[in-house]
């Protein structure tokens, strides 16, 4: 990376800090990532495509992206409501609830995994009520969705909340004085303002959910073709010492993750433009 100061500054330490930061980042993150790509490209093109498009792998993509999308969508809807309630309404215990929203960030995913599995198994606290209805959650793809909803729950709430807080009450009052109803105000004034944040939150939740491993492996059942997520498939390949296969599937996942990261950056830039 060519990083040269555009403008000299009187503050000291530019070369030192930039050098250290770039060096550390290269050593810990960039070089290992580059090595993974190199490993995958040791395969011929046919071998590569044969691995990453094998039926079992394709099934795992479908499951991983499908459940992650569903979980992110659920969190977008409920996250908006939670953020709305936390910003707009007063109720007892609000600060506690507000603090608790971050629990999935702080709780190790393995703990979430075994707890949700226990809760949703057929004799668990929640599973026992679902069983008579013929709904099976643990050890099925719907269990994966439950785990992913848990681990990606804070994203939408935490991206939408500050934007809602910064919305000026006067704009809504102005709309009301012009004769708009509450629903019209939400649809035409509030929603456009929070849309970038909502999309950012959705993308963050989605990106987090597709990479998730710890909480999912306990609840998923891990049946190939049915409930085997892509990260688990990578671990399986590793355990069989199929390094190239694991690297190939990882490269596909990484490429998708990078695209999502790019989307998040663009969305945040869009959100900032909106605020000005």
């Amino acid at each position: 990376m060519s990083a040269s100061p555009r403008q000299p500054s009187v503050l000291p330490g530019f070369n030192l800090t930039l050098g250290l930061a770039v060096g550390y980042l290269s050593l810990i993150v960039l070089i290992p990532l580059a090595m993974a790509f190199l490993k995958a490209f040791q395969l011929s093109a046919e071998e590569f495509w044969a691995i990453v498009l094998a039926p079992r792998v394709l099934a795992s993509y479908r499951l991983t992206f499908g459940t992650a999308f569903l979980a992110a969508a659920i969190n977008t809807a409920f996250g908006l409501i939670v953020a709305w309630v936390l910003v707009r309404y007063r109720f007892p215990g609000k600060r506690l609830v507000d603090a608790l929203v971050d629990l999935p960030f702080a709780l190790p995913t393995a703990v979430a995994g075994i707890t949700l599995t226990t809760l949703y198994s057929s004799n668990g606290w929640i599973g026992q009520f679902l069983k008579p209805l013929g709904i099976k959650v643990a050890f099925t793809p719907s269990g994966i969705v439950v785990a992913l909803v848990f681990i990606s729950l804070p994203f939408v709430v935490r991206t939408v909340q500050p934007v809602l807080e910064d919305l000026e009450a006067e704009v809504e009052e102005a709309a009301a004085s012009l004769g708009a109803g509450r629903w019209q105000i939400f649809r035409r004034i509030i929603f456009p303002a929070i849309r970038p944040a909502l999309l950012t939150g959705f993308t963050l939740a989605f990106a987090r959910a597709i990479g998730e491993y710890g909480s999912v492996i306990f609840i998923a059942g891990n049946l190939p073709m049915v409930s085997e997520i892509t990260p688990l498939l990578i671990v399986g390949k590793l355990e069989q010492y199929d390094y190239r296969g694991a690297a190939a599937v990882s490269v596909v996942m990484l490429a998708i993750s990078f695209i999502l990261l790019l989307c998040i950056n663009l969305l945040q830039r869009w959100g900032r433009l909106r605020q000005v």
Binding site: L11, L33, A36
Partner: peptide, 28 residues
């Protein structure tokens, strides 16, 4: 504290580990 070319790239690179599945991080 400084303006330099490639700054936004650097900021994005710092976020990279968030976008990488933990399993892939281990694999690396």
């Amino acid at each position: 504290k400084f303006e330099f070319r490639g700054k936004s790239v650097l900021v994005t690179l710092i976020d990279l580990p968030f976008a990488v599945s933990p399993v892939i991080a281990g694999l690396l």
